Amino acid sequence: MLACSWSVTSLAPYLSNKRYGTGFSCKAIDLQSHANGDQDNQIKKKKKKKKKVVIVGSGWAGLGAAHHLCNQGFDVTVLEGSPEDVGIRGYWYPHRNIFNLVDELGIKPFTNWIKSAQYSGEGLEVEFPIFQDLPQLPTPLGTLYYSQFARLPLFDRLTSLPLLAAVVDFDNTDTAWRKYDSITARELFKQFGFSERLYRDVFGPLLQVGLFAPAEQCSAAATLGVLVYVLSHQV
């Protein structure tokens, strides 16, 4: 187990931590040997046999790699540039591998669900729900009903409805990808009648966050793929 991946205070007896300036490092050790007693002797014996691995970064990739390598018998050290950045602050609810790992380790590191908010230069634009805290409605009624727009007029919101036809049509097959991959997300929005304000204040910024590129550079197929995923999982 990577002992330092969650609560340093509660897991203090299992940690071997060192701080260098603002950095943070920790040793991944086997908690079972601690529970059985003779921890020091067992760890010393294992150290003689184990190959050592250093992992840089304590995000999900780093912690997941550390956990896997520990299970394979490696002596793992995780390095992180900032103590405040150990772990991750958010993830998709359908990522069952995270929940399976948490159940396997027998820990409860998560806070309650919080709403996602989007801001523009003029202030709060919209709050998106976390559906696990709300009664689920048939897709996409939950998204339409629970999302709270602070300033966007109803008319602009309604211009998003025709896009649902493309969402339904996009079944994530090779045929669907070829059909929509030839145009950009911006062209898709124009084709289905998005208002300029809806694009500028909501969907444009969302694509920058979700696909790391402006709509003029994003494939319409990739955009629809994200929308289908979000709507179908209600996350």
Rank of each mutant, 00 (worst) to 15 (best):
L2N: 09
A3Y: 07
A3T: 15
C4L: 04
S7G: 00
T9C: 02
S10M: 03
A12Y: 03
A12W: 03
P13N: 06
S16A: 09
T22E: 13
K27Q: 11
D30A: 02
L31N: 13
A35H: 11
Q39E: 08
I43V: 10
I43F: 01
K49D: 04
K50A: 09
K51T: 03
K52S: 09
S58F: 12
W60L: 14
W60K: 09
L63E: 05
L63P: 06
H68Q: 15
L69A: 11
L69R: 03
C70N: 14
N71K: 10
V78Q: 00
G81S: 10
D85Q: 09
V86R: 13
G87V: 01
G87W: 06
R89I: 10
G90I: 01
Y93S: 11
P94T: 13
F99G: 03
L101F: 02
D103S: 14
I107K: 13
I107V: 15
F110S: 12
Q118Y: 04
Q118F: 08
Y119V: 01
S120W: 04
G123D: 08
E125A: 00
P129D: 12
I130R: 08
Q132H: 11
P135V: 02
P135I: 04
L144M: 12
S147P: 00
F149L: 01
F149Q: 02
F155Q: 11
T159E: 03
P162T: 04
V167N: 00
V168I: 09
V168F: 11
N172M: 02
W177M: 04
R178Y: 07
R186E: 15
L188W: 02
K190S: 13
F192T: 14
G193H: 04
F194R: 09
F194P: 11
S195C: 04
E196Y: 00
R197S: 14
L198Q: 07
F203S: 15
G204E: 13
P205I: 03
Q208N: 14
G210H: 10
G210L: 11
L211F: 05
A215M: 04
E216Y: 06
S219Y: 02
A221V: 09
T223I: 08
Q234A: 07
V235Q: 10
